[in-house]
Design a protein around this nucleic acid. Structure first.
Lengths: 358, 358
DNA sequence: ATGAAAGCGCTAACAA
DNA sequence: TTGTTAGCGCTTTCAT
């Protein structure tokens, strides 16, 4: 199990170009070091002829740092995270960094092993969503000099830089819009409230309802059963479950705020199957504005979270942190939280309630 | 820019446990090598106390091989590829491999640089979709001992193992179903025919129409304009364009086969906006069976490509190729192509045509 | 059962 | 301008 036979090293190229490994290295890694043009040519040709590919492992070991950034998301099958990753990738490409994508499936154990794996691989920085029980790990990692940015949901303790959305404001926007349309009895449908983002949305939602002299009765807060790791997308099943429970509600609400678009899509379809017309029979507002949200029929009204922008921003922040870490000055600026503001996207699933139902 | 100050090496742990690096290595890498239990304990404790994390770069350089598999897809924002990656990941996790995900955005230059990057990183294998101009690269790479499996679309030259779908059969299934429902004038809507997969679907579609004494008139083959790299999903815009062209068709077809689900979703919505009822006014059948396909209203009838299964299969094949490569026996088995069979998923967007329109 | 030492491929300090 | 050499962190002979 030694080295593969076919792999060439810098030494081989040096021999073929009749020079030394050092010079080959200088040429092939675009060092500003001066090399006689004629020799430079010879080296480039030898490398090309031999189809030589430098070994990044050797290089990294020597240099002691990498240009890899790890990104840990619950699952790329959720289009929200796919969008976010796209933002990170676009930014990373420009800065000549590589990204290593890890799915945690929202499992703290997998999350932990992903983090450790990235550390072992000497990733220069880590972008992470989720982060259930692993907050202790964070401090350890930062102490060891790996930059970290948590995104997508606010983490309770302020141990690292964060990027997130103003979920409270998002919840408020939804309540404001629905109440403004004239709805008086409104339900809030959500996946389990174990994530801060969801709790904050709910809080904002309630707060804004109050300003309209409304409230969210207990029976109108519908929380889906616990999620599990599985190949199929959790939100779709949860949406079906919640739609059923909504339909069974006594004195049915005229509007319905849903904690994310995927869930809303499941709900929309189930309501359609039950024979309801949207928005005539019930208004629906989602949260996220996935690319697909515009594609439901009718098109989903939603509160936009700019996932792609968040990805870009998260990368830029971790990048900044990396430059600082490699800086000799030992000053460590305190962690910063950056919130992106949500935006109401009006489409077709929300309308004033039928006068008869008020 | 030397080593980070905070990083511990195996040597540090050896010192703290008052033993040698060799022994520490044996303990921490779970070598079967015998180590006195008492000493083993001491080492483990020292490592834990120091929060030591082994450096995977050093390890890989020494061992000469990695457990990383690169996967190159057009974009993970397309749920089809997200699903496929999930399949790869599930399989890789079991085999204790890591996957490195690269988006090529269908750009041959990015694709090439992704491949080279993986080679430099000493990836043990590469799974790749797309592959426009880079077929020459493939041979070079295989010669250097990196396992490669191409997936998702058939590549013309047989230089490496392939996994794909039986697209011809997929096209046939769509035609068979629509013709069987009684449709006589059927359109085929597709993104550009520069990919083999699409051409083959079309071929199968035509072939099966013939068996029903039907044909695809030129004006009923609608091909969308060229795709471009962009943050937003290309298929959605293309769907809108094609729906418009379909609506303008003289003697409008009663059914419509669409080359993928994403495109079909865009089309479905546009038809809805134009006031058409599906499937009363026109039947629609998609291709892929994305998780979201079941969520349109009405739910999309489609030809299923088991993307997750393909991901699993692709991994297993590249895995097999890797074990063979590291084998001393120099026998190289010829490349193999494996095709997964498509399956008709009947939902609600296709029905017999209105008798009046025949 | 343990340790000393060599060396994976590369780059950077130093020498020439 | 070029080459020699040391060493990044790890594993694995080989010697003890």
């Amino acid at each position: 199990m030694a080295k593969s036979p076919g792999k060439l090293t810098i030494r081989d190229i040096a021999d073929r170009a009749e020079t030394s490994p050092a010079t080959v290295s200088r040429v092939l890694s675009n060092s500003p070091y001066p090399v006689r043009p004629e020799l430079r040519q010879r080296i480039l040709q030898a490398a090309a002829a031999a189809e030589y590919a430098p070994n990044a492992i050797g290089r990294m070991l020597r240099q002691g740092f990498s240009r890899d950034i790890g990104v840990i998301v619950p699952t790329i099958s959720n289009p929200f995270y796919a969008q976010l990753l796209l933002g990170v990738e676009l930014e990373a490409r420009q800065a000549d960094f590589n990204i290593l994508i890890c799915n945690s499936f929202r499992d703290p154990r997998i999350e932990k092993s992903a983090i450790e794996n990235l550390i072992r691989k000497q990733a220069a920085g880590i972008l992470i969503s989720g982060l259930g029980d692993n907050q202790g790990l964070l401090e350890k990692i930062q102490r060891q000099g790996t930059a970290i940015v948590a995104f997508d949901q606010n983490i309770d303790s302020q141990v690292c830089n964060q990027v997130g959305f103003n979920f409270i404001r998002g919840g408020m926007l939804a309540a404001e819009y629905l109440a403004g349309l004239g709805h008086r009895r409104i339900a809030f449908l959500t996946t389990p409230l174990n994530r801060r983002s969801r709790r904050e949305m709910l809080e904002g939602f309630r707060r804004e309802l109050l300003r309209h002299d409304l409230e969210l009765p207990d029976e109108c807060l519908l929380v889906a059963g616990q999620e599990e790791e599985s190949a199929t997308i959790y939100e779709l099943a949860a949406g079906r479950e919640l739609a059923g429970r909504f339909l069974a509600l006594p004195q049915r609400p005229t509007a319905l705020a849903v904690v994310n678009d995927l869930l809303a899509m499941g709900i929309l379809q189930q309501l359609h199957e039950a024979g309801l017309q949207i928005p005539r029979d019930v208004s629906v507002i989602g949260f996220d504005d996935l690319p697909f949200a515009a594609l439901t029929t009718p098109a989903l009204t939603t509160i936009r979270q700019p996932a792609l922008e968040m990805g870009r921003l998260a990368f830029r922040i971790v990048r900044g942190q990396i430059s600082q870490t490699s800086n000799p000055a030992q000053y460590r600026p305190p962690p910063v939280t950056t919130l992106l503001e949500p935006e109401l996207i009006v489409r077709q699933t929300a309308a004033p309630p039928e006068p008869a139902r008020l």
